[in-house]
């Protein structure tokens, strides 16, 4: 019996959101994030031509070639994706963008651009596929590697890690989350919330490199993540256009104080159901405290770590025309030039 494939509101099947087959190692965390991007875009009925996929350089940054084949993409330079996204979105501010970076790409060579793009509040989803190593150059320590991590060819890391979530918050990010590529449901929920966010949305997703950093004890490994992940909350997204998955969970009404609802600009609601911890991501103080605790206690906390109402985006600050700049053919008139010339006489 022929299986009828499910279509979304645009009449597309999920396959229409795929791209070229991945060339990453089987089991690489990055692949599973690509799959979640495909799933989210399908579920959110995203018209692919309205979305840009951008990246830097690294195994992680290769992945945009493996999802959303009908979206324009740009695989830029190592650590410099943020500037390219900035320009592309200034050329056409009506587009959305999903960008993929790595922990090396963002935490080392690209640290400057990471912070400055946040400061400018360029509206896009900035995913860091964080595996604690440089995958593409074969397993050197990255700046997010935990102290004491031992790698085959590079010995022991004696330096403290950089926490990219903390860096993002300090830089003024208004949407900052941490997740684990093995926690598909959470990755997908956070992705969907991030896509709805009107500002730079940072997703630091621990995404194991199964080839170079996957020992049970390594903080970025798959087994470690499965065993140690502590979600701060359960996340449910109610998108305006959301096509509910088959096994739809009804929006539950939680008891008072058990659920925090964050409303996004496009009408999306993010419901955060409290788990063990009493955690409100709208408090910067709580975010700092929980990150400090996570570091001290070596806890792998995931979820929406920080959220605030976004400030104006860069295109808004620049007061750019409603029509995308790219489509404008605007030369001031000859009279204007002649007037200016007169003022120089």
């Amino acid at each position: 019996m022929a299986r009828v494939e499910k279509t979304n509101k645009l009449g597309l099947v999920k396959d229409d959101y795929q791209a070229r087959p991945t060339t990453l190692c089987p089991g690489c965390g990055h692949n599973s994030i690509s799959n979640q991007i495909v799933q989210s875009a399908f579920d959110l009925n995203i018209a692919q031509h309205q979305l840009l996929k951008m990246s830097g350089i690294g195994c992680s940054s290769k992945s945009p070639a493996y999802f959303l084949g009908r979206s324009h993409g740009f695989n830029a330079l190592h650590g410099r994706m943020p500037s390219v996204v900035t320009g592309a979105l200034m050329a056409n501010h009506t587009l959305k963008a999903i960008a993929v970076s790595g922990d090396g790409d963002t935490g080392s060579i690209g640290m400057g651009q990471f912070k400055h793009v946040i400061r400018r509040n360029v509206p896009f989803v900035y995913i860091i596929e964080n595996n604690g190593v440089y995958g593409l150059t074969k397993g050197q320590f990255s700046a997010t590697a935990e102290e004491g991590l031992e790698l085959k060819h590079y010995g022991r890391n004696e330096m403290p890690p950089i926490d990219l979530v903390l860096e993002a918050i300090i830089s003024g990010a208004t949407f900052v989350a941490r997740s684990f590529s093995g926690d598909k449901k959470q990755v997908q929920a956070l992705l969907e919330a991030a896509i709805a966010h009107k500002g730079t949305a940072i997703l630091d997703i621990i995404s194991p490199c199964v080839t170079f950093n996957n020992a049970d004890t390594s903080h970025h490994s798959f087994p470690y993540g499965v065993k140690h992940e502590v979600p701060l909350h359960e996340i449910q997204i109610i998108a305006p256009d959301f096509v509910a998955p088959q096994d739809e969970i009804e929006v539950e009404t939680y008891e008072d104080g058990q659920t925090i609802e964050v409303s996004m600009h496009d009408g999306t609601s993010v419901l955060l159901k409290k788990l063990d911890k009493d955690y409100d991501p709208r408090s910067k103080a709580q975010a700092y405290a929980v990150l400090e605790e996570a570091q001290r206690e070596e806890l792998f906390l995931t979820g929406l770590i920080y959220y605030e109402e976004p400030r104006p985006t860069l295109p808004e600050l620049e007061q750019v025309a409603d029509t995308p700049l790219a489509l404008i053919n605007d030369r001031p008139s000859k009279d204007k030039l002649d007037d200016i010339m007169k003022s120089f006489k």
Binding site: H72, F74, A76, L77, R80, P82, S83, V84, V85, T86, G87, A88, L89, M90, A91, N92, L95, G112, Q113, H116, P324, L325, A326, L327
Partner: peptide, 20 residues
Amino acid sequence: QAEDELAAAGMIIGAGFGGA
């Protein structure tokens, strides 16, 4: 105004790609 010339170049290249 970019944070350095590297970023300035990246931005204009992104914009050029975007059609501006």
